[in-house]
Design a protein around this nucleic acid. Structure first.
Length: 107
DNA sequence: GAGGTGACGGCGG
DNA sequence: GCCGCCGCCACCT
């Protein structure tokens, strides 16, 4: 049985709006995990069937740092472009405007 | 039990 | 803005 914080990370990832992206650090701060590495590790532990949009989670520079964990290294970019997000050289274009902070979930 | 690793980030130079 | 150092913490030799 997965630990609770892993499920929390996946839950936040699922609530990322379509066509928007966020960062490991933003999720780590929102869940007060104390380390962004935990978010990356938790995403790597996402099971098939949980339907976690891990492709919307990037590092602080807007790079697709986790693309190697997908079935093929191009899967992450393809799924982003499918949502209308353009990717160039493993980086999201207009990252600053597409960034979505999980804090917006709170009222 | 000890040391290294990693889908990372903040801070100083 | 780029580069390097250090902190972070669960996991894996």
């Amino acid at each position: 049985m997965p630990a609770q914080y892993i499920l929390d990370v996946h839950d936040v990832a699922r609530s990322i709006p379509r066509g928007r992206v966020t960062t490991y650090g933003a999720i780590a701060s929102f869940l007060t995990l104390g380390s962004a590495r935990m978010v990356g590790w938790a995403m790597n532990k996402c099971m098939p069937g949980e339907d976690v949009p891990a492709h919307r989670v990037l590092n602080r520079k807007g790079e697709l740092s986790g693309r190697n964990a997908f079935p093929t290294p191009t899967t992450m970019q393809e799924r982003l472009e499918e949502e209308g997000i353009s990717v160039t050289d493993d980086k999201v274009d207009n990252f600053k405007d597409l960034f979505w902070d999980p804090i917006e979930l709170l009222p």
